[in-house]
Design a protein around this nucleic acid. Sequence first.
DNA 1: TGTAAAGTCTATACATGGTATAGGGTCAAT
DNA 2: ATTGACCCTATACCATGTATAGACTTTACA
Lengths: 135, 135
Amino acid sequence: MKIGVLAQKSGLSIQTIRFYERKRLLPSPERTQGNYRVYTDDALQHLLFIKQCRALDMTIDEIVELLATRANPESSCESVNATIQKHIDDVAHRMAELKALQKSLVTIRSACAHNKKVKECGVLQELDSFVAAKS
Amino acid sequence: MKIGVLAQKSGLSIQTIRFYERKRLLPSPERTQGNYRVYTDDALQHLLFIKQCRALDMTIDEIVELLATRANPESSCESVNATIQKHIDDVAHRMAELKALQKSLVTIRSACAHNKKVKECGVLQELDSFVAAKS
DNA sequence: TGTAAAGTCTATACATGGTATAGGGTCAAT
DNA sequence: ATTGACCCTATACCATGTATAGACTTTACA
């Protein structure tokens, strides 16, 4: 199949597929005489695996590693487990950050329930007071 | 003060300060005869305000808007409240995404508690099965 | 006064994960 | 023969910085 069909089937854009190829995430496919890329069903499976990993927010480098490990059926999957675990930790960390953020934002919002003039706005005063506390 | 001192006092890097200036987040300061930037304490306050907003994960564009509103004490602070509210919504949305992500990751991790060979690794099988389900 | 070190300047490239465009080539149908 | 759909490469752009190179200024010290 050509790249347009692959894009349709995978749900990724043509540019994204070419981008993954440049990043060595997807092997370079054969070309036709007219220099068009030709893909097999394997490439589609490969691409869907990548898409799944991206949906899990893995970086391209992590996916490259995962694919490299996967390519050796006899090797140890230790690095795969480590990658997933690190990922879980990262997500947990980011969630904790966002929770703290949300708390600050809600506090700030409560400072100005009604629309007022800027000089009376509690939200801006809150933002300033954070500044004052730090300087 | 010169940019190095401002960087020290604000806790931001010199490059970041110059970057904010290019992005029109920070007004262009006066220069010495030798073309060095010279900052007042106002610039420090301004920068700390920006830093606080960035810590709340606001985009540069949002901060530009906030600063523009703040510059007119008699205008309405309605847009400030809207910005904060949209921000709270964005953070909530992102947290929900991460929660779903975390659930998937934990499920995947549980598929391979012990290190095995790649061909037996439950984690890789899980990732593949997601792919299979979609294709 | 000479010089070396520390600080600053601009311009540019890199990172991440794509997206968008320009300017061309290929292929199938009419 | 030409149109339209598709594809190609190369390049620039998005956000939010970080990191360099190469040049200039200022400061410190002998």
